[in-house]
Design a protein around this nucleic acid. Sequence first.
DNA 1: GCGCGTCACTGGCGCGTGTCAGTATCTAAC
DNA 2: GTTAGATACTGACACGCGCCAGTGACGCGC
Lengths: 324, 324
Amino acid sequence: MTPAKRTTSADVARVAGVSRTTVSYVLNNRPGEVIPEDTRRRVLEAAERLAYRPRASARTLAGGRSDIVVLSIPDLPIGPSISRFVEELATSLAKHGLTLFTHLMSAHGRPLADVCATVEAAAVLGFGSFEPETVAALQRLGVAMVEPVDADYNASMGPIGRLQAEHLIERGHRRLGYALPAEPGFRQMAEGRLRGAAAACAAAGLPAPVALIADPEAADAEQAVSQWRELSVTGVCAFNDEVAFAVLAGLRQAGLGAPQDMAVIGADDIPTARFATPPLSTVSIDLAEAGRHRAEQVVTGLAGERVDLSSALVKVALVHRATS
Amino acid sequence: MTPAKRTTSADVARVAGVSRTTVSYVLNNRPGEVIPEDTRRRVLEAAERLAYRPRASARTLAGGRSDIVVLSIPDLPIGPSISRFVEELATSLAKHGLTLFTHLMSAHGRPLADVCATVEAAAVLGFGSFEPETVAALQRLGVAMVEPVDADYNASMGPIGRLQAEHLIERGHRRLGYALPAEPGFRQMAEGRLRGAAAACAAAGLPAPVALIADPEAADAEQAVSQWRELSVTGVCAFNDEVAFAVLAGLRQAGLGAPQDMAVIGADDIPTARFATPPLSTVSIDLAEAGRHRAEQVVTGLAGERVDLSSALVKVALVHRATS
DNA sequence: GCGCGTCACTGGCGCGTGTCAGTATCTAAC
DNA sequence: GTTAGATACTGACACGCGCCAGTGACGCGC
């Protein structure tokens, strides 16, 4: 059935006329080992010709650590900005021979620590923070690098809220609202963004925004709108574009419109924001750069160096359209 | 640094007072091997107490095949319905001890076959069909199960288009349009849906829909709208909700509206569809069930049995709102 | 001639698991 | 008393790779 056994490094060694060790040295170009150009070429050619791919399992077993990086994704809808981030992260890690493995927390086959134990993960990443016991468990497993907080991502939360609020303040709004989703998975992110908005208000000498829930999956937006109007809120920052659309729908149900009755600004700049009626003002977030940066951090971290997690490289930009 | 070496099956054997082989037999409850209840309990208890987790790398190396299932995702934005599918698939596979590994094709670290070779994938799944050479390469690697066509998913494409077209026909439209995205990653899916719509038209004795591109990321929608109007198209099926929003925007730019000037129906029922202005008619797709079914197929396929790929278990339903 | 150092390799161990062939003990049949 | 078969295990090898320790060849200084 499987007549052609898979090629191993021994096959390469035989073809190249060297020992298996030499093959290993060449292929992993081991630092400190000097291999004459001629031998190196022979090995490389043989490997190429036989289409040799080292078996990850064997490599892991021997080395004690795999080249798998696990990214734990919380139970939330994966928007385009997140998937862009993941994509970029995976690509950049792949360039360093690391393979990204996204583990959906909602896919509750086994707890995170178990999955990492079986695959012998080299590093574990996640959005938000892990619980201390999870971190402890992972470290006990010998995972080289646990990143409890996605620093880049979380650091980007503040500026988003700030940008939203500053925009509305600049346009003359003196009393702001903040629209939150109901989804618990979003809570951490939402708090970050809200804090940013509150900071902008404080800097302008204004009271903190009135935070209310306006979930896209429910119909509580109209109620939120009427509460805001009672408190003479004239501008609302929404957690993201979908929440913004919910607010907009709430306004419409009350016979009102944006921006004349209430200004609304979203976040994420999802594709539909541009073509909505009216086109939604929002904040665009470039996570691609963050993904690359993140990968860099993992690589240096795995090399044993201490990494600086403070730098936030997420580019956010205001996109002014018709609802503000 | 790492004082507590990780527990191995030898540790369990020692604690339980049996041989390593017996531990293996108990833990994998090997069929055909009879283990007295008492011994079994001792082993299980020891394993529990030591928190023993077998190392996947060693298991794979010894067994020649891992418990990793690779799902290749094409270069397209991962919508909520797809991510729901993936989620459900991962959960169901996990119940059978299989781990899902989603590989983004756009994350072009290495070609699919390479990734599968290194992780020794047990099965490879994908949306759409793989190229023949990829399939051949994978089989040469000894991958037990290659599913070139995601039967469920593809089979669901037709009904979606059909449902859209039937709905519009039922409401009196005699000449239909079909709105396509520009994104090449969507092509296969789009063709499937379009075929479904065409079939519905044919069944009603109508000409095939006029297919034009109306991409959400570009501004070609207005042009498409005017072309449709020239051909006296009165109802448009959109590939998905985002494309539908693009068409709606095109209509608006031309000073027209849905449904009075042209009926529009989307697909996927994304959250924003419900709260858009006006709320978008669409087709909802339940891929959760499909995910579970899919997992089942993989498990039986891995057990060596022949699986029937023809059955499509995707539930689609019309969601009539205001744009049609 | 000897010692020393460098170069270019290689032999072989160990990683943790699955599994096959084998063994020791016991019961039952002839 | 011997054989046969079942029961309840165990010893040891194989899987493919990384890498340490070692080896032989060669050059060079004294």
